[in-house]
């Protein structure tokens, strides 16, 4: 029971890990390249959450020094994740661009069919 409460109090991590596993599963299980990229994005997003959640302190404010406040949220994770989001977007964009090119070259974005077509050559 204690563990259950403990888990419930850290529900944010459960959500993060669920997203992480879901994303990873999609990447592994799907043969469609676009779906793979979607999975990859979900996977990456879960990491954004992993960073940002602990930065939030209940009752904390933005980190602007003011005598009225003594508890601040940590701004650094937000900054880091801003960078990570940029990286993620770039990855997704490049991935999609590759998928477009693959579609042009093979006429399909299904991994199995591509393997099939290469074997024929």
């Amino acid at each position: 029971m204690a563990t259950l409460i403990d888990l419930a109090q850290h529900y944010n991590y459960i959500v993060t890990i669920f997203l992480m596993m879901a994303g990873l599963y999609i990447v592994i299980a799907r043969g469609n390249m676009v779906k793979k990229l979607i999975g990859l994005s979900i996977f990456q997003t879960s990491v954004y959450l992993l960073y940002i959640e602990p930065g939030k302190i209940i009752g904390g404010t933005a980190p602007i020094i003011d005598p009225a406040f003594s508890v601040y949220s940590n701004p650094l994770p937000h900054v880091l994740i801003l960078t990570a989001i940029v990286v993620g977007v770039a990855t997704l964009a490049l991935g999609l661009a590759l998928v477009v090119r693959i579609n042009e070259a093979y006429g399909t974005v299904e991994e199995e069919e591509i393997v099939e077509k290469d074997r024929d050559v």
């Binding site: 990447v27 390249m33 793979k36 998928v99 090119r101 693959i102 093979y106 591509i114």
Partner: peptide, 9 residues
């Protein structure tokens, strides 16, 4: 292209 995509993943 496929190799790059696989590497990307």
């Amino acid at each position: 292209l496929v190799a790059a995509f696989q590497y990307l993943i």
